[in-house]
Design a protein around this nucleic acid. Structure first.
Lengths: 211, 211
DNA sequence: TGTACATCAGTGAACGCGCGTTCACTGATGTAC
DNA sequence: TGTACATCAGTGAACGCGCGTTCACTGATGTAC
């Protein structure tokens, strides 16, 4: 976050003026745009610089390398999932509870639709073992996982470990958010995806589960 | 598959003899081994050659580039999930059904434990948009998704779209398989993960779901 | 069993591209008085 | 309002590394007779 707002400083420690902050912003935006069409592994400093119409040397005034720029983007984006946590505040019961689950899932999909490229890249890097990206991902998802975990724990059910269940649900939601467009080409509508996923979440969280 | 067994041919069309097939095999094994410690984007032809104790030129007798070698690996590995489909054959009901779900989830985790590096890389490449890796992934998961989908369809429940539900469950299982080791460092045991995930699967597939 | 030939297999060495990165410099902006 | 100075910002041009890739060649293996 600090890495993205105006308080950021150049790598040599200078404070950033208006002009510098704007350039940094443009570099980040270009990075995000390029991620839409290519993976992190094909993203060159030269490309980013060219996209902004500047010299590669400029890039190095603000970021040590491409990863650092992407990480800054991922941090900023990750924070925008915060509002979803509010949906986990009230008790989920009956039709109103199901409705909350729907909003959670729908919010997740919207969040991904808005930031697909950055989120995908963040997760790829995290899975490849990059600890910085892991941390950023956890920071973003942890509150949701914990919120769900608390809910599961409230109605303790044999066989269900709250944290494992919450992790499983978050895993499912994230993956559905990442893939729902593909799924839709297989005939499931977006509404189907949301409703179905929401019901699985709701029932795991609040229904009694057993054979 | 053809790409992996002895019937494979060199890139110039020559048939492969015993010696050539063995070299190809060693190159693939080295590729798999290196994927354990580095991502696809850091995997160099030079590294693979060195690992096998051969010249880079040798690599090019068998594969056009690193991607092609990894793809061959992914194909071979993907096929090994086939036995899991058998678990979807019988009707799932009562305790026996839950037990089948457990075996499915457990099998998924074992499958990933055995081939983590290759599967992770396959999925990363697929998500980055590489169609060849997408196809390989689908080929491996499609039978499972369809099996689950049929089961969901058998007890039609309001609000649940069978294919969407099956996709969600597969998404969840795959992610749990990929992440269960991390989860265990958060306190959930492997048994917790299997039992919890299995119950979510079982209940989505065979239980009535509604508010 | 031996010889000649065809094909399979492996490689040393080199070329060249593309990218990351840096440096010394110019230009822009801000501020003190 | 103008001038001098400090700091911020941007860049052209170059260097060099590392890797992908190829080619002409040597060596190994197989087979026909």
């Amino acid at each position: 976050m600090a890495a993205v707002n105006g308080a950021a400083s150049a790598l040599d420690g200078r404070a950033l003026g208006k002009r510098g902050a704007a350039t940094r912003r443009r570099l980040l935006d270009a990075t995000g745009a390029l991620l839409e069409s290519k993976g992190l592994r094909d993203l060159r400093v030269v490309d980013i610089a060219r996209e902004v119409g500047t010299s590669p040397a400029t890039f190095y005034q603000y970021f040590r390398d491409v990863d650092e720029a992407v990480l800054a983007l991922a941090e900023a984006v990750g924070e925008q999932s915060a509002p979803l946590v509010d949906l986990l505040e009230p008790r989920w019961s009956g039709e109103a509870g199901l409705e909350s689950a729907r909003r959670l899932v729908d919010g997740f999909l919207l969040f991904w639709d808005d930031h697909r490229a950055v989120l995908r890249t963040r997760n790829l890097a995290a899975q490849e073992g990059d600890q910085r990206f892991r941390d950023v991902r956890n920071q973003s998802l942890q509150p949701i996982t914990e919120g769900l975990s608390r809910k599961v724990a409230e109605n303790a059910v044999a066989g269900i470990a709250p944290y494992a269940a919450a992790a499983a649900l978050v895993a499912m939601m994230e993956r559905m958010a990442a893939f729902h467009l593909d799924l839709e080409s297989y005939g499931a509508t977006r509404a189907d995806v949301v409703e179905t996923t929401a019901r699985i979440v709701f029932h795991t969280v609040s229904g009694p589960i057993g054979p």
